[in-house]
Structure formats: structure tokens, C-alpha cells
């Protein structure tokens, strides 16, 4: 086990940021912590990176206790905080060089590990970090977090504020790092990124809702989900919410995801009801649950 978390609770003045959190991350796993802002993701990261002390519970990273052995953890983990924490007034190369130096290593020594990421930003190595685009900052921050060849990598919302192309490239990089044997714990508010992890924990309001592989989590959703669409979205949502048998009604892009309370639900019946509400162009099709559906069902 690379990361062990047992019964961790943490509260600030008034807020219970984390409530009795327990899970484990296997060595070499790409583990995702999925939840909205304020769910407690950053607090958990800070406890695991020895920046905060939990009120209750124990945790260990790479076999070291986060409190008693914090110095060993600091030597063995890479951490990329929420906002890409770089020195804006230093160049790309100076940033990397600085982080290499404070970890007692050099860029050359671990160049293999960062090579395929660094070559993408190398053309800009003399540019100040403050002048980089979001995607390039993200890559540089990742290089800085990797430069000392950590055993465990903590990435706190690495894809927030980054465009889809950079996001995709970033996840491809993580997959390659994972193949090199690095354990990765990554947090994100984007449900669509969950599918890219080996296992995920859904977190909201300081509580873990579910932990499993993305495929298994989706299977936990037992009710059949229907994609409903009609000519007027606003009236469609209102009508479905007013339908006496509805279990859940959530807008989902161009559709509404609808589940019914009855086990013998007949879509034709719903169509008749919607028509009675003066809606037209009605389509009702069965669809598969997504991580987001599961999340909402669990958080309900």
C-alpha cells in the first residue's frame, strides 16, 4: 500500500472539512479524488503531504507516518498544489533548476523522468513562468514536482483552468508516469476525468460517497436512466419535476436525465403526460449512467 488513510477527520474553526475518511491507494495506482470545490480534497492532500495535522485518525504515505515521519515523506513525495505554484519572475529553466537544487538533485540526474514533458516546454525555457499559458504552467509545475523522482505524486486539481487540449495531454502524461512505477493521487472537480483513473473516490462535504473503479461505480447505479428531450427545455424540466412518479430529474446537456420510481416504468406513458403539458418533439431513450449520475444519486 502506498497511501493508507484511516478514520481521518479534520475541522477548522467552524467547518468540518473532513469526516472520518478512510481509503487506501495501491502502489503504482492512478487514484482519483473526485468532488466539487469545498469537498475537502485540498485539506486531505495537505494532511497527506504533512502540511496539516488531522484532528483524528492516522495516515501513512510510502510507508511513513504523516506525523512522526514527516521528514521522510517530504523527501519522497512530489506535490503540485492547486494553483500552479511557480515563481512567476523566474524563467522556466530557473524554476526547474531551483526545485531540483532544493531537493538535492540536478535536472540532468532525473532528466529521463521528465524528458517527454519537458521537451514540450523547452523551446520556452528562457521565458518567465508568469508569461506562460495555463497549459504550459501546468506542465512546468508537473516537471518541478517530478524532478526529485518521487515515489508518490500528489496533484491537487492539476487540470483546473486549463483548456481541453492541455487537459487531455496532461492525462496522457499521467498514464506514462504511472507506467514508470509512480503512485499518483490526483484530485479533480471534473467528473469526465474520473474514467481515466484506475480507481476513484467520490467526495462531497468532507465525506467519501463511494470508492471503486470507474466502471464499477457506474454499475452501482441500478435504476434505468432515460434521456428525455423536447422542444422547450424549461417546460420539460418543470413538467418532469411535477410528474408524480419521478425519482430524479437532472438537466444533462441537451437532454434531461430522468429516472422513475416505479419498477414497471413505461416511457410511452411519460410521453403522453408530457404531451398533455403541451410539449412537442418529445424523445425518450434509455441511456447509461455516468459517474456524474452516480455522484448525484449518492449526494442526494
Amino acid at each position: 500500500m502506498s497511501i493508507k488513510i484511516a478514520n481521518i477527520s479534520k475541522s477548522y474553526k467552524k467547518v468540518n472539512a473532513l469526516k472520518n475518511i478512510s481509503f487506501e491507494v495501491k502502489s503504482g495506482e492512478l487514484f482519483g479524488l473526485i468532488g466539487p470545490d469545498g469537498a475537502g480534497k485540498t485539506t486531505l492532500f495537505r494532511i497527506l503531504t504533512t502540511l496539516l495535522i488531522a484532528n483524528e485518525g492516522v495516515a501513512s504515505v510510502a510507508g511513513f507516518d504523516v506525523i512522526t515521519d514527516y521528514k521522510s515523506i517530504r523527501k519522497n513525495v512530489g506535490y503540485m498544489p492547486g494553483k500552479f505554484s511557480l515563481y512567476q519572475d523566474l524563467t522556466v529553466e530557473e524554476n526547474l533548476d531551483f526545485f531540483a537544487t532544493i531537493f538535492g538533485t540536478t535536472i540532468e540526474e532525473n532528466y529521463d523522468l521528465i524528458k517527454d514533458i519537458y521537451i514540450q516546454i523547452e523551446p520556452f525555457k528562457n521565458r518567465r513562468a508568469g508569461k506562460l499559458s495555463g497549459g504550459m504552467k501546468q506542465k512546468l509545475a508537473l516537471c518541478c514536482a517530478l524532478i526529485h523522482k518521487p515515489k508518490v505524486l500528489f496533484l491537487d486539481e492539476p487540470t483546473t483552468g486549463v483548456d481541453p487540449v492541455s487537459r487531455k495531454e496532461f492525462w496522457e502524461m499521467l498514464k506514462r508516469l504511472q507506467q514508470k512505477g509512480i503512485t499518483i493521487l490526483v484530485s479533480t472537480p471534473y467528473m469526465d476525468e474520473a474514467a481515466l483513473c484506475d480507481r476513484i473516490a467520490l467526495i462531497q462535504g468532507g465525506k467519501i460517497l463511494e470508492i471503486d473503479t470507474p466502471a464499477a461505480i457506474v454499475k452501482h447505479y441500478l435504476k434505468p436512466i432515460y434521456n428525455v428531450s423536447a422542444n422547450n427545455m424549461y417546460q420539460l424540466v418543470n413538467s418532469l419535476k411535477a410528474y408524480e412518479y419521478n425519482h430524479s430529474v437532472y438537466p444533462f446537456g441537451e437532454f434531461v436525465h430522468y429516472t422513475d420510481r416505479r419498477s414497471d416504468f413505461n416511457p410511452a406513458e411519460l410521453k403522453v403526460y408530457l404531451e398533455s403539458k403541451k410539449l412537442s418533439n418529445i424523445t425518450i431513450e434509455k441511456t447509461v449512467a455516468t459517474i456524474e449520475d452516480t455522484f448525484m444519486e449518492l449526494a442526494k
Binding site: 468532488g35 466539487p36 472537480p189 467528473m191 417546460q235 424540466v237 437532472y250 455522484f295 448525484m296 442526494k300
Partner: peptide, 21 residues
Amino acid sequence: TGGVDPITRRQFWELIYKASH
């Protein structure tokens, strides 16, 4: 709606639908 939880985000979109309506 960046960073908001999925349920709140849907409530937000419902407000937008309403405004549009």
C-alpha cells in the same frame, strides 16, 4: 459553473433555462 457540485450546477442551469424562457 466551474467547480460547483453536480446537483447545484443543474439547479444553476435550471435558472438559466428559466431566464431564457
